[in-house]
Nucleic acid binder design. Structure first.
Lengths: 189, 189
DNA sequence: ACTTCTTCCTAAGACCTTTAGGCAAGTGGC
DNA sequence: GCCACTTGCCTAAAGGTCTTAGGAAGAAGT
């Protein structure tokens, strides 16, 4: 019988694609096996279990997203950098909703610490170098930016902003204006 | 055989409690049946299917959350109101993580329109009456506030802010300071 | 008491997850 | 080229969840 050429890598990538097609929640070992035209049990040599598969997809997505962010940030500073990073998140979520959903998977601490998640935090902090913030306000601002990016993207993707004018693109750019203004005039405690 | 006294109401409430205990994703018709010491099929007279159950839990949570918000908002305005509403979300998420997760369930448009979700939007908009914003900026601000509240609460609950100083309570109050400052000095386009 | 409705049950099919053990396709030594 | 060995995919099977169909017993109205 011809071999399908399964690999942890290929399974992870296919799982990510599947997530984008049918939603991250719908990614199942069975569906993945069907996609490779292979019996379900065969996947268990390459992936420990269902949770392992999901975790790998999440790590892949975090990595891809961090790569895009690093690319977008190169050579930019200030509001330019802020906008670029924000757009990376939003665009990635729109292009790859399943992958983006995967990035929200709760990882156990060690896995999270070894993931590209730390690069994301570093890049957000890097943006703040263009503004005049010192600790601990810088950390507060990092968390605020993370909240806005994540919250906005999630709500928009979940349809929370649909069915109402004005359109979301307008809100997005005005939100970035507002964040820029806020960072330039960060209030004293 | 003695009757268990099942009701759509009781199932929904028990489902919400179960969600808080084991996580919304883990809420299953089977687990719910076990809790009532009843066979699984018995639930299907009271709940259409698994998705129906989840939707009901989501609607319950949205309702509870809106009630708390309305309570907290009574008699408050300006930053006082902003803080009160924000704390309602954060506290609810911390007390009832499963219920809060349920509020993120994607509802189909008609269900969403009939849900307490609209009250949430109205209350956020009400807060903005204490600030000097006109349309379309008011809508942009409503969306921004929604993004921050949702994003912050989600990240904090998911452990995104753990393992780093300063503590999240400090960030939370500084975030509210920042939002208040932003709304008072909303940038022109 | 008799009928009727409701509530919960048994039975059964379909799908997903996971483990255990087997055969055959590649891989390396000789 | 042939052997042993490793690896990749398989069959088999057990357990869990979802869902529907149809039956029996408790509750309620006449």
């Amino acid at each position: 019988m011809a071999r399908a050429g399964l690999t942890t890598e290929r399974l992870t990538r296919a799982g990510a694609d599947l997530a984008d097609e049918v939603g991250f929640e719908q990614v199942t070992v069975s569906a993945l096996a069907r996609g490779f035209d292979v019996k379900v049990a065969s996947l268990y040599s390459h992936v420990r279990n269902s949770h392992d598969l999901r975790t790998r997809i999440a790590l892949l997505a975090l990595e891809e997203l961090a790569d895009r962010a690093a690319d977008a940030l190169a050579g930019r500073a200030g509001k330019d950098a802020l906008t670029a990073l924000a757009n990376v998140y939003r665009d990635y979520a729109r292009e790859h909703p399943g992958r983006y959903a995967a990035t929200q998977l709760r990882l156990d601490p060690e896995t999270a610490a070894a993931s590209a998640g730390v690069r994301h935090a570093q890049m957000t902090r890097a943006i703040l170098r263009g503004y005049d913030l010192t600790e601990p306000d810088q950390t507060h601002a990092v968390r605020l930016l993370g909240s806005v990016f994540h919250g906005y993207v999630t709500l928009e993707l979940g349809g929370g902003f649909s069915h109402s004018a004005p359109d979301t693109q307008e809100t997005w750019s005005r939100t970035l204006d507002a964040l820029d203004a806020l960072l330039r005039n960060w209030p004293a405690p």
